[in-house]
Amino acid sequence: MSFDECYIKSVMRTIPDWPEPGVMFRDITPLFKDPKALRMIADSFIQRYIDTEVTHIASIDARGFLFGSIMAYQLNIPLVLVRKKGKLPGKTIHREYALEYGTAAVEMQVDAVSKGDKVLIFDDLIATGGTILAASTIIKELGAEVYEAAALIDLPDLKGSELIQQAGIPVYTLLAYEGL
């Protein structure tokens, strides 16, 4: 583990049994109170994508917006929003995805991306992969290409990264936490 990874993990906190018993919640909010950690994270992602063909960042509601906006600004590329259904004005396209109990849906505005765009999907955390897979479906339906899915944290035991990769989308994360 690199110094950056160790430092970032030391700033984050784990909250046991939240939002329900048995869950170890990985809380990223302390990162936003630590400028050093925030810069380490932003710089790591910016360095990864600065010399790529990425034309847009599709950032997922809501914590993905926080890092995604920093990256889009520094890379000088558009930030497009992937939001919970019913939160975006204008004409949108949505896709449902499975949750542990039921379904949810995300949406994008129909003019967010178009043919020829190479889109990086960014979220704070990959758990089951449903949100990123739903976003990738929308992006492809709008004619764009998914360049990669990226997140600060991967929870590999939930197999979301595996599912995303099986769908033909490369995955990159800075940190991984084993166990739930």
Rank of each mutant, 00 (worst) to 15 (best):
S2D: 15
E5Y: 09
C6N: 14
C6Y: 11
K9I: 13
V11N: 00
M12C: 10
M12L: 10
R13Q: 13
R13F: 07
T14C: 08
T14Q: 12
I15R: 05
D17Q: 03
W18Y: 15
P21Y: 03
P21F: 06
P21W: 08
V23G: 07
R26Y: 10
D27R: 01
D27W: 06
D27V: 09
T29I: 00
P30D: 05
L31A: 02
K33N: 15
P35Q: 05
A37R: 05
R39F: 06
A42H: 04
F45M: 07
R48H: 03
T52S: 15
I57G: 03
I57E: 00
S59T: 07
D61V: 11
F65I: 07
L66W: 04
G68A: 14
G68Y: 06
A72S: 12
L75T: 01
N76M: 10
I77K: 04
L79T: 08
V80T: 15
R83H: 04
K84M: 09
K85M: 10
K87A: 07
L88E: 09
K91H: 13
K91E: 15
T92S: 10
I93Y: 02
R95Y: 11
R95C: 09
G102P: 07
A105I: 09
V106S: 01
E107W: 03
M108F: 09
M108I: 08
A112M: 04
K115A: 15
G116N: 04
G116D: 05
L125W: 02
G129E: 01
G130V: 00
G130T: 00
A135Q: 08
S136I: 09
T137G: 13
I138T: 03
I138W: 02
E141I: 14
L142K: 02
Y147G: 00
A150E: 04
A151L: 12
I153W: 04
D154W: 00
D157R: 05
L158S: 07
L158V: 12
L158R: 02
G160Q: 03
E162P: 04
Q166W: 08
Q166S: 13
P170T: 01
V171W: 05
L175F: 11
Y177T: 08
Y177A: 01
Y177L: 00
E178H: 12
E178W: 04
